[in-house]
Amino acid sequence: MSGVSLKPRAAFEARVDLSGITPAVTCPLTLLELEGLPVPYGGKSVKLAELFFIEGAPEGVLLIEIGDVRLDGVGAGMQEGELIVDGVVGAWAGRGMGGGVLRISGDAGDFLGAELSGGRIELAGNAGAHAGGATSGSRRGMSGGVLKIGGSAGARAAERQRGGLIVIGGDAGEGLATDMIAGTASVGGAVGPLMGRGMKRGTIFTRTVPALPAGFIDTGEQELVALQLMARRVPELKAVIGESVRARRLVGDTLLGGQGEVLVPA
């Protein structure tokens, strides 16, 4: 089948792990082969067809209709192609993705875009905790690509991020950019408490000056050529930067020798 559409047969009663079932995997398969793909479901492994109605879709696309909060690992490991979810997803959507586009019209669970290294994730709804973060035991979070969250992000977004761009249209939860290593994130709405602890490098754009830990230093308002450069080069940042050429710049976490920055465009 050139493109594949998956529609859950019913709401899932246990967690389903779709990791590795990407357009590059599904598109070359025949319907029969697709039906037999093993999928972890709760404590078992079942056939894809037990969980989904499988139909055709446009070339190169994997389409998931409706979605499910227990549908984990959507787009995980994806390197190319387009994966569209018309609904919600569970945890680990786009985990370790290296290329391609993942579009989700609903909300996502925890660890959306964790360890993303390339490609683009566009989430219309809200994301759970650790968006763009690091998986258990991993030292680094997202390292490249774009993670766009239309709604709000939960706690510890951009934790250990080391590259790429996270754009949060709504609010960011507690502990934003904790231990951030590098990269860029922007928050359109409010920023939760305890952001930036252990931040090494990286840039966070916010609309108002957030509460910051003791290791952050306010360098005052600065005229920054880079603002308009970023606004022009990165369309996603245009919304938060606007026409500003000045921004308040706060640097930290200096207690750990960090040189990260929070920029609040004037």
Binding site: E13, A14, R15, D17, P38, P40, Y41, G42, G43, K44, S45, R70, D72, A91, W92, D110, F111, A129, H130, T135, S136, G137
Partner: peptide
């Protein structure tokens, strides 16, 4: 700990398979 065995293959996840989260999905 916090590891799931699914069809004789195990996978670890510090949050999904924490008791509180796993309870919400268990039967």
């Amino acid at each position: 700990l916090r590891t799931a065995v699914r069809g004789q293959v195990s996978v670890h996840d510090g949050s999904l398979y924490a008791t509180d989260a796993a309870l919400a999905d268990a039967d």
